[in-house]
């Protein structure tokens, strides 16, 4: 089998709130092979974001082991972690986290700024490319507050892709998108996954999104309650084609603003 890119063993994360301790993760173990497309599901508050933050090397577990590409994350220095986050991981936040008063293009350029391997000249070009991939090229000069929720989410996705990471960690990346755009994003991710072997860990609570992945891990109360291989992976491209064609002539999809 392919090598394990992620391997977590009995991962625990506790938050101390005064005298109380919130146990967000109570011992999570699973591993992800390189090139896998995994969705993590679970109800609100089940610990999905907490887990993804640890996988993205943003947060540290209270207890347990996390091996990223064979290396124990605990032993890495701050700078090594920073480099990892920059080159290997593309992170899509549940709350986008775009820089305010900074254009979409500049937001997407941001990870390249911290990548010494990308010369200044190529930065703009790469960022435009990434924005084109999420079909936002015509909004590149807009500030986040001049974009709809769904457009902001797509900027965040473009930002995670721009540095050509080996792994995408996305937290509800289609949470604010309409069906069509969601499918487009999923089609894009599926393509990156199959063509470039990009590993994807995708948090969602929508079943019709999970069908596009090859495996679903379900969390409940900080524990894994289900971990199943998806035998029948749907093609997002086909699903997109099957959608009613009425919106086809529209340049931009209409977003539904259903932030929860």
């Amino acid at each position: 089998m392919a090598n394990k890119i992620l391997d977590i063993i009995d991962l625990k994360r506790e938050f101390k709130m005064g005298s109380e301790t919130v146990r967000a993760l109570k011992g999570v173990s699973f591993s992800v092979d390189a090139g896998e497309f995994v969705t993590i599901m679970g109800s609100s508050g089940s610990g999905k974001t907490t887990l993804l933050n640890i996988l993205g090397c943003l947060d540290k577990p209270t207890d347990g082991k996390y091996l990223l590409d064979g290396a124990d994350v605990k032993s890495l220095s701050r700078n090594e972690l920073a480099k990892l986050r920059n080159r290997k991981i593309g992170f899509v936040f549940q709350s986008y986290n775009l820089l305010a008063r900074t254009s979409a293009l500049e937001n997407v350029e941001l990870p390249l700024l911290y990548n010494a391997d990308v010369p200044t000249k190529e930065r703009r070009e790469k960022a435009m490319h990434a924005l084109e991939a999420v079909r936002l090229a015509d909004r590149m000069d807009h500030m986040p507050n001049q974009l709809s929720g769904g457009q902001q989410q797509r900027v965040a996705i473009a930002r995670s892709l721009v540095n050509e990471p080996v792994m995408i960690l996305a937290d509800e990346a289609t949470g604010n998108l309409d069906t069509r755009t969601s499918y487009e994003i999923m089609a894009l991710l599926q393509e990156l996954n199959s063509k470039q072997g990009l590993t994807i860990v995708f948090v969602t609570h929508e079943n019709d999104i999970a069908v596009f992945s090859s495996r679903t891990v379900t969390l409940k109360d900080g524990r894994v309650i289900k971990d199943v291989k998806n035998e029948n992976v749907h093609s997002a491209k086909d699903a997109l084609a099957a959608l009613p064609v009425e919106k086809d002539d529209q340049k931009l999809p209409v977003e539904k603003d259903d932030q929860k």
């Binding site: 986050r85 920059n86 080159r87 936040f93 820089l99 990870p111 911290y114």
Partner: peptide
């Protein structure tokens, strides 16, 4: 602070 957090999350080192 939030901006700093974001920059770090996408790969800025302390020195940056």
């Amino acid at each position: 602070t939030k901006e700093i957090g974001l920059r770090m999350a996408i790969g800025a080192r302390g020195i940056d």
